[in-house]
Amino acid sequence: MVFIQIPPLRERQKDLETLIGHFLNKCNHSLNKNINTISSNVMEIFHTYRWPGNVRELEHVIEGAMNMVQNNGVIKKEHLSVHINSFGNKNDILSSNNHLSQKNDLFMPNEKNENRDNNKNTYEKSNEKIVSEIIPESIPDHPINLAQLQTENEVRTICQALKDSRGNAAKASRQLGISPQLLHYKMKRYDINRMDYKPAPKNSSE
């Protein structure tokens, strides 16, 4: 099993708008639409939400919203999926955060401006670099649901705990904060062998 380490989106807030612009372009192409505007309250939700599903969750949220918006329309809060919308309702986003100017009700990540046009090549290369760092080319381009992402993260975490404990399941379970019985159940479920993480025996002839 091969895992690809993707930087948590919550740790790349400064790159969030670049990713949003990237996914808008991608979905416009695949959905044959022309949607390039997001309301400021949606952007506030995007900046505050923790994104447990990482960049794939962001892509799916944007794609789902764009399916709800008419061509040349604006992505608004009511177009978001239920769990994102509920998050926005539970948190007073606009009053507690101010990533965007309150005077600017709309956000256009791909909007052209004079400074950007004068440095078009530098700007585009910078964005391409950011996107390639966060979304490796080796990630498959098919939908990945949240359950699959959670499973992969759980397997990776268990393997890391076994590596840290040198194959000691009791120590690994304490590190993970779960019972040894639950750890053994998960190891069996995911076909993880703790012996693979035990140090190799020293050669007695040495």
Rank of each mutant, 00 (worst) to 15 (best):
S204V: 14
R194A: 06
T18P: 00
I20W: 03
E17F: 06
I139V: 14
P7M: 06
G53I: 10
G88S: 01
K103L: 12
S81F: 01
I144K: 03
V2I: 11
E152P: 00
I4Q: 04
D117L: 08
N203H: 06
N203K: 13
G177Y: 09
I192W: 09
E114C: 07
I130H: 02
S173H: 08
N97Y: 11
H99I: 08
R10F: 04
S40C: 07
E11D: 11
P140W: 05
N121S: 10
E133P: 00
M108I: 10
D191G: 06
N127G: 05
K171G: 03
M66R: 01
Y190V: 12
P8E: 09
I84W: 13
M187T: 09
I45V: 14
V69D: 00
N119M: 02
Y49S: 09
E206M: 10
K129V: 00
A170N: 14
A161H: 05
K90D: 14
N54F: 11
N25Q: 15
E59P: 00
P180K: 09
F3W: 12
Q181S: 10
R174K: 14
L182H: 11
E154H: 05
E17K: 04
I178N: 06
D15R: 00
E63T: 05
Y49R: 07
D164E: 14
N67T: 11
A65K: 11
R166T: 13
Y197W: 08
S179K: 10
Y190L: 08
N54S: 06
M43N: 07
Q70D: 12
I139W: 09
M187Y: 10
M68V: 00
I62G: 02
G53R: 06
A172I: 10
F23R: 02
Y197H: 10
G21L: 08
N36V: 04
L176E: 15
P199E: 04
N115G: 07
N34V: 13
S95H: 09
K202Q: 13
E11R: 01
T37F: 00
W51R: 05
L106T: 11
L94T: 15
N119K: 04
R174C: 08
N119W: 00
N34R: 14
N98I: 08
M1Q: 11
F23G: 03
D191H: 13
E17P: 00
P7G: 02
Q160D: 09
N36F: 05
T151I: 15
V69N: 03
D92T: 05
E154D: 13
Y49T: 12
I4V: 06
G73Q: 08
N72I: 07
L9P: 02
Q175A: 15
S204F: 10
K77G: 02
N97K: 11
E206K: 04
Q70G: 12
K90T: 10
T48P: 06
H184P: 03
